[in-house]
């Protein structure tokens, strides 16, 4: 024990901690407030934004139709791409050389070519393949149709977007699966769990946890780049706006309307992402977060499939 000089006697119970000063934080705050104020001022007082016009188009039926098309394209493509992406990820990780190679070629091809070109090719499939038939090779035909009757702008758009997106999601899901500790599979094997159970109940839930943030990025990207389907004359949100201002020349206010709707949907997607992250992250947060919570327990039970 060191002896303190008489004039510095201290009471250890009343030690007060003074946090370090952070002057740059204050500078940062002031600068941010000034920038936000300037931008807001320009938005609100500059008449060129034509907020009155924005208001008239915000709920225009053509815009709302376009919004609905964009949402449908995004949701349907994302669902199909997730399923196909999962399949591609499993194929890439399989022991068989054939599935691994096939998935590799698929990903190489679809990531390596522009979506725009893929869309145009799907839309013009009839030029390449006039009719489609399903049947036993060299045997009877079970189903046959003219390509033109199957390929509408809508099916071409879904094919183009989903098949392309699946290549990206496949790689994201694969990296998620690889990130799960090998000891998990080992423990499941030692317990005698089947391969399907091991994958579905043990590996996949843990893989999806790390897959959610990059997959959400993909969903938001897909939402916006789905506007490329305007090349095959499918009026989604952006294209609907363009059709309007091509006639009225109210370019800026109509594009603002389009942006507002994109922002609304992206906000909703972000909320969904946070919710998924929280649900799949149960048990992974250190500290108090890992404790019992009956609602979370139900979710875990759903994953383990033992209702």
């Amino acid at each position: 024990m060191t002896v303190l000089p008489a004039n510095t006697t201290r009471d250890e119970d009343s030690d007060v901690v003074v946090p370090r000063r952070r002057p740059w934080r204050w500078v940062g705050t002031v600068v941010s407030v000034l920038i936000v104020a300037a931008v807001a001022n320009s938005f609100l007082t500059n008449p060129n934004y034509q907020w009155d016009v924005v208001a008239t188009y915000l709920f225009d039926p053509r815009i709302l139709d376009g919004l609905l098309t964009t949402l449908q394209l995004t949701v349907v493509s994302m669902v199909l791409a997730s399923a196909l992406g999962l399949l591609l990820a499993v194929m890439r990780l399989s022991r068989g050389r054939l599935p691994r190679g096939a998935a590799g070629v698929y990903i190489w091809l679809f990531r390596g070519t522009p979506v725009l070109v893929q869309l145009i090719l799907w839309y013009n499939l009839a030029i390449l393949v006039p009719s489609v038939s399903i049947g036993i090779p060299f045997g009877p035909t079970l189903f046959s149709a003219q390509t033109n009757t199957i390929i509408t702008p809508w099916t071409a758009a879904i094919l183009g977007l989903a098949l392309n997106e699946a290549a990206y999601l496949g790689e994201i899901i694969r990296s998620g699966i690889v990130s799960v500790d090998r000891g998990q599979t080992e423990a499941a094997n030692a317990l005698g769990l089947s391969r399907v159970d091991t994958f579905r109940r043990i590996v996949l839930p843990q893989a999806l946890r790390v897959t959610v943030p990059p997959a959400s990025n993909e969903a938001i990207g897909l939402l916006k780049y789905s506007s490329v389907v305007s090349v095959i004359a499918l009026p989604e949100l952006l294209y609907s706006g363009q059709l309007i201002y091509a006639r009225t020349y109210e370019t800026i206010p109509v594009l603002l309307v389009v942006c507002i709707w994109y922002l609304v949907v992206v906000t909703l997607l972000t909320l969904l992402e946070h919710w998924l992250e929280r649900r799949l992250g149960v048990g992974f947060r250190t500290g108090a977060g890992g404790d019992a919570n009956p609602r979370k327990g139900r979710w875990a039970r759903w994953w383990s499939g033992n209702h």
Binding site: A187, L191, L193, L280, R301, N306
Partner: peptide
């Protein structure tokens, strides 16, 4: 089998860790 690093399933509660294999297998 019991492993050096436990290898419990981190996304499942203690109870789910114990009941999963008896139910599935």
């Amino acid at each position: 089998m019991v492993f050096q690093h436990f290898n419990l399933f981190p996304h499942l509660t203690v109870l789910e860790n114990v009941v999963t294999a008896p139910m599935r297998v």
